[in-house]
């Protein structure tokens, strides 16, 4: 239990640092940037403390906001993702997910992929919707969501394969 806590704190700091120093400066075609820092919420232990997840997601988002001058958009998007995570689990893995020992940072199966895809879409859509803050920009928001989602998922999968424990 103690080592999981340490791993999560380490992940929190490392992903934030990577996001701020490297990924925030990646502006593909001028407006598409990836947000792989949400891997912290995606990779959080399945049967971990839910209140701790919600609180730490809020902290994660508010630090991102601090660095990108965006008010509370990242915080809201992270909170929404953290709160709906159990429902996405149920959708992607079936009803009895809590009794299975799901490890997310492993080889990508269709189930794991659909979980990551749904999480990223929910986060990005909330984020860009709040960033634009006007329904007249809804088409732009959808396009940015779509493109950024693809970009984020590619980078997330690369990171998962990189940090995968080499047991075999």
């Amino acid at each position: 239990m103690n080592s999981t806590l340490l791993v999560n704190i380490f992940r929190f700091v490392l992903l934030l640092a990577l996001q701020i120093i490297i990924f925030n400066n990646m502006n593909f075609l001028g407006y598409i940037s990836p947000f792989p820092y949400i891997l912290f919420i995606i990779l959080y232990p399945v049967n971990g403390n839910k209140s701790a997840l919600i609180a730490s997601s809020f902290l994660l988002g508010i630090i991102m906001d601090l660095f990108s001058n965006s008010g509370g958009t990242h915080a809201t998007a992270c909170l929404v993702l953290a709160y709906f995570r159990p429902s996405i689990f149920k959708f992607a893995f079936g009803l009895s997910y809590e009794y299975q020992t799901i490890k997310l940072n492993d080889v990508i199966t269709p189930q794991r992929f659909s979980f990551i895809l749904l999480s990223v879409v929910i986060h990005h859509f909330t984020l860009f919707l709040l960033e634009a803050f006007q329904l007249t920009y809804i088409l732009d928001t959808l396009i940015t969501t779509l493109l950024s989602t693809v970009f984020t998922i590619i980078i997330c999968i690369i990171i998962i394969y990189l940090i995968k424990p080499n047991k075999r």
Partner: peptide
């Protein structure tokens, strides 16, 4: 969990609206 979520959601939405 629900109360914590709503509380923090309120805070972050307030910050978002203020920033706009």
């Amino acid at each position: 969990n629900k109360i914590l979520f709503l509380l923090l959601l309120g805070t972050s939405l307030t910050l978002t609206i203020q920033s706009h």
